[in-house]
Simulated scan of single mutants.
Amino acid sequence: MTAAQLADQFRDHFGHRQHLYGVLLAELADDLDAGGATATICADHLDAPRGDAIQLRLLAGIFRIVLRGEAPQLEPFYPSLGGRDDPEQAWPHVRPVLEQHVDELRTALDLAPQTNEVGRSACLAVGLFEAVRRTGLSRVRLLEPGASAGLNLLVDRYRMVGPNWAAGPADSALVLDTQAPGVRPEELTIVERRGCDLSPVDASTPEGATYLTSFVWPFDLARHARLAAALDVARRHPVTVDRAPAAAWLAEQLAQPVADGVLTVVWQSITEQYWPASEQQAAAAAIEEGRARTPLVHVAMEGVPPQQMAGSYDIAEHGPSTTVDGDLVARSHHHGPPVLLR
């Protein structure tokens, strides 16, 4: 990929200038074409595959600088920080921030996006209900490769709702509206939960919370509210996320003995696109080998966003698929609800 192609990728991500990130990606693309600070920052990533979402890594790096209070001139443009200023006026204030933080932003491009988007729990829960229904086993051992901070491992601590149904604790700090009629919740107990990630995030620390927050678009206030609620739950119910690659970790976890009557569910969401092909193949092999030892179901929510023009995004066509052992059960937005049952 050339600098011009990467610039077009920036422009096409939203395809409009209707919000802050639409404006910034258009301006960053022009700066990239012109050989400005953006070109210096992105120089080592011109050959990155589209799935690496270099544009989102850069926006998150800038947002972290703002969240740390090191670019107060940008705060009026960030709605999640109370900003209301016109995004079209932001670029002259962003350019010097790029120039002052070139090294940090170059490093930021090495970091895969980790929103640990907790809205995905609503989609994964549909898969989990189906796994319990298929096997008749309601005691669940939950394993998650690519778990980031492990927020989705706390799915049973969240309240899920939809037309004429609900599941999970009524007093949960986080309520996820799936907007999906026809979901049939299953009674289940998670008896063990554990995840892995190449770069696990400690959600209990201010640094970890800031890191996760930086990947959530600043104008999407509902997602920020969801993340804040999930972080509150995680501080009260911490989970273990090991620093390890997916395949080796899965092989180790699935080799361990499991009590009778416990269903192992391996689940993942929007992570496989960041794995090399060899890792994808090895992880799939580890799961298949695990099936020979214990009752196991694989739940996955995966799908690379399409190239978007004029902001178009049809969930039924473009949304990631939630599958249970390869069978499609739902589609959704990449950030979670609404959930469309299949």
Score class of each variant (00 low, 15 high):
residue 25 L to M: 15
residue 68 R to G: 08
residue 102 V to C: 01
residue 27 E to T: 00
residue 89 Q to M: 11
residue 45 H to K: 05
residue 219 F to P: 01
residue 52 D to W: 11
residue 194 R to Y: 03
residue 274 Y to V: 01
residue 84 R to V: 14
residue 91 W to E: 05
residue 317 E to M: 11
residue 41 I to H: 00
residue 276 P to V: 02
residue 253 Q to E: 15
residue 263 L to F: 06
residue 81 L to Q: 12
residue 138 S to H: 14
residue 84 R to N: 08
residue 160 M to R: 05
residue 319 G to N: 07
residue 243 R to D: 02
residue 222 A to W: 05
residue 219 F to W: 11
residue 278 S to C: 02
residue 201 V to K: 00
residue 27 E to S: 09
residue 277 A to G: 15
residue 328 L to C: 02
residue 199 S to V: 07
residue 30 D to A: 15
residue 45 H to F: 12
residue 31 D to E: 15
residue 318 H to R: 10
residue 269 S to K: 05
residue 197 D to W: 10
residue 317 E to Q: 14
residue 342 R to F: 12
residue 176 L to R: 12
residue 302 E to V: 01
residue 274 Y to I: 00
residue 148 S to I: 04
residue 318 H to F: 11
residue 166 A to C: 11
residue 291 R to S: 02
residue 340 L to V: 09
residue 103 D to G: 05
residue 204 S to M: 07
residue 319 G to C: 04
residue 159 R to A: 07
residue 292 A to G: 00
residue 15 G to N: 07
residue 89 Q to P: 01
residue 41 I to K: 00
residue 289 E to I: 02
residue 35 G to M: 09
residue 98 L to Q: 10
residue 49 P to R: 02
residue 266 V to K: 05
residue 324 V to K: 13
residue 191 V to T: 13
residue 7 A to Y: 13
residue 139 R to G: 02
residue 18 Q to E: 15
residue 105 L to W: 00
residue 243 R to F: 04
residue 170 A to F: 08
residue 261 G to R: 02
residue 247 A to K: 05
residue 147 A to I: 07
residue 226 R to M: 13
residue 125 A to L: 14
residue 84 R to M: 10
residue 150 G to R: 09
residue 16 H to E: 08
residue 94 V to E: 03
residue 166 A to P: 02
